[in-house]
Computed example of a mutant assay.
Amino acid sequence: MKETSEKKAIIKKLMKEGKTYKQISEETGIHPGTVGIYGGKLKKAEREKKCFNGDRHLCKTCKYRASGARSGCDYIIHTGNERGCNPEVCNKYERGNRNETKTSSKGK
Results as ranks from 00 to 15, higher is better:
Met1Asp: 12
Met1Glu: 11
Lys2Tyr: 15
Lys2Arg: 13
Lys2Leu: 15
Thr4Leu: 08
Lys7Asp: 01
Lys8Gln: 08
Ala9Glu: 03
Ile10Gln: 02
Ile10Phe: 03
Ile10Asn: 00
Ile11Trp: 01
Ile11Pro: 00
Lys12Ala: 02
Met15Asp: 03
Glu17Ser: 09
Lys19Arg: 06
Lys22Ala: 09
Gln23Cys: 03
Gln23Lys: 07
Ile24Trp: 01
Glu26Thr: 03
Glu26Met: 07
Glu27His: 04
His31Leu: 02
Gly33Gln: 06
Gly33Trp: 09
Val35Gly: 01
Gly36Glu: 09
Ile37Val: 11
Ile37His: 08
Lys41Ala: 12
Lys43Tyr: 10
Lys43Phe: 14
Lys43Ile: 10
Lys44Ile: 13
Ala45Asn: 10
Glu48Tyr: 11
Phe52Asn: 01
His57Asp: 01
Leu58Lys: 10
Cys59Ile: 03
Lys60Pro: 00
Thr61Ala: 06
Cys62Trp: 02
Lys63Gln: 10
Ala66Thr: 11
Ser71Asp: 14
Ser71Trp: 15
Tyr75Cys: 15
Tyr75Met: 13
Ile76Arg: 09
Thr79Ile: 04
Glu82Asp: 12
Arg83Met: 13
Arg83Gly: 14
Gly84Lys: 13
Cys85Glu: 10
Asn91Cys: 12
Asn91Pro: 02
Glu94Gly: 12
Glu94Asp: 10
Arg95Thr: 14
Arg95Trp: 05
Arg95Asp: 13
Arg98Asp: 06
Arg98Ile: 11
Arg98Phe: 10
Glu100Asn: 11
Glu100Ile: 14
Lys102Phe: 06
Lys102Leu: 11
Thr103His: 08
Ser104Thr: 14
Lys106Leu: 12
Lys106Ser: 12
Lys108Cys: 07
